[in-house]
C-alpha cells in the first residue's frame, strides 16, 4: 500500500508491503519514514494543535499543542478537554496548560498575559 509520510514537509511517498510487524517500507528519505509507516499500521499517532480561551481581552485565545503525540482516534476527545480550559494567569511558550491528556501534556505554543508584552 501507499502512504504519505507526514513527519516532515518532504512528504515522502512510502510504499509498504507485507502485513503486521513484517513489513517493508520503501521511498522514505530517512529512517523516520520507516518508523512512521510501522506506527501508522499498528497504532497511528498524531500531534494536535489548537487554542484555549484566555481571560486576557487583547489575547482571547492562546495557541497550544500536545507535547508528544496522541492516538489518532482520540483527537476529538482531546479537543473536548482543550475546550474546557481557560487561561487566567500569564503563560509563556512551553508552559503546561493541561497535564496528562492521553499520555502527554497540552502545552502553550505562544505567550499570553503580562509576559506577552
Amino acid at each position: 500500500m501507499e502512504m504519505i509520510c507526514i513527519v516532515c514537509p518532504n512528504g515522502c511517498r512510502l510504499e509498504v508491503t507485507g502485513t503486521g510487524d513484517d513489513i517493508t517500507v520503501t521511498g522514505a528519505l530517512c529512517p523516520k519514514g520507516v518508523d512512521f509507516a510501522h506506527t501508522e499500521l499498528t497504532a497511528p499517532l498524531r500531534s494536535l494543535t489548537s487554542t484555549v480561551a484566555t481571560a486576557f481581552p487583547l489575547v482571547p485565545r492562546l495557541p497550544v499543542k500536545t507535547r508528544g503525540e496522541i492516538p489518532k482516534g482520540k483527537m476529538h476527545e482531546a479537543m473536548a478537554q482543550i475546550r474546557a480550559v481557560r487561561v487566567t494567569k500569564p503563560v509563556k511558550v512551553g508552559d503546561v496548560i493541561l497535564a496528562d491528556v492521553f499520555g502527554t501534556d497540552i502545552i502553550a505554543t505562544g505567550n499570553a498575559g503580562e509576559v506577552a508584552a
Binding site: 516532515c8 500531534s47 497550544v64 511558550v93 505562544g110 505567550n111
Partner: peptide, 22 residues
C-alpha cells in the same frame, strides 16, 4: 499559524508557527 511543521530545517525541531515566531 497554530499548526506545526515549522522549523525542521532551521531549528531541527517540529514547531508550531507561533513557536517558530516566538
Amino acid at each position: 499559524c497554530v499548526h506545526d511543521g515549522f522549523g525542521l530545517m532551521r531549528f531541527k525541531e517540529r514547531l508550531t508557527g507561533t513557536e517558530y515566531a516566538q
